[in-house]
């Protein structure tokens, strides 16, 4: 199911309507495809290209710049272990080595059962919980080796399904409304406001001029 489902296609069109230029929807649509399929498939990139009006190569060229967009399959759970400064000082490297041993894969690889992909990630802005790991971008920490294994066990058992959605799903709350105003309406509103503002500024300047004269006469 690499093309958008009817529901997702409708959502894609809604996202497109939010931007003055369709290409702005490129990353949101890639996220939408990844939420649907778990990774960014070639077919999805073709469809994103059609929708935003660029070539598939441009979608790939853009998506490949971004770490979160995966142009090859990943596991059900993407586990990112942070080893950046705050985590390093709290044992992030040791946690990553433990994760490698525990899952039996090197960073970048997926377990044979397709359950887990391990990554070494850069700071995920959860440094008060160092060392921390992100599972499908939900944060856990501080994590020692035992806590890590427990987390993996819970994920395997499906005990965290409510907290950790499938890979690719970021916000489970989807925007349902389009823009409340049209570009033309807002432009007219702003032009009027700018004119009023200019009028107030010149009135103020005239007043200042007037009081300035008054001051010199007294």
């Amino acid at each position: 199911m690499a093309r958008f489902s009817p529901e997702n296609l409708a959502h894609a069109r809604l996202l497109l309507s939010l931007y003055p230029e369709p290409r702005s929807a490129l990353l949101p649509l890639c996220h939408l495809a990844q939420a649907q399929d778990g990774w960014l498939t070639p077919e999805a990139m073709e469809q994103v290209a059609e929708l935003v009006g660029v070539t598939p190569a441009e979608v790939l060229g853009t998506a490949s710049f971004y770490d979160m967009l995966h142009t090859s399959p990943v596991g059900t759970y993407l586990i990112g272990v942070c080893t950046n400064l705050a985590c390093l000082l709290a044992g992030g490297e040791e946690l990553l080595r433990h994760a490698e041993r525990s899952l039996g894969v090197a960073p970048g690889a997926t377990t044979e059962d397709g359950m887990f992909t391990l990554e070494e990630v850069e700071c995920v802005a959860a440094c008060d919980r160092a060392p921390c790991a992100a599972v499908n971008w939900r944060y856990f920490g501080p994590l020692g080796p035992d806590a890590f294994d427990e987390l993996v066990g819970q994920l395997r058992a499906g005990a965290l399904a409510a907290e950790v959605p499938a890979h690719g799903v970021l916000s489970r709350v989807r925007r349902r409304r389009g823009l409340a105003t049209t570009t033309e309406e807002v432009a007219a509103e702003r032009r009027a406001a700018d004119e009023e503002r200019a009028a107030r500024a010149s009135a103020k300047a005239a007043e200042a001029q007037g009081s300035g004269d008054g001051g010199s006469r007294s």
Binding site: L18, Y19, S24, L27, P28, C30, H31, A63, Y66, D67, M68, L69, L170, S171, R175, L179, A180, T181, V186
Partner: peptide, 9 residues
């Protein structure tokens, strides 16, 4: 109108 736009890493 406000639009929330997700980055991608």
């Amino acid at each position: 109108d406000i639009v929330v736009h997700p980055g991608a890493g």
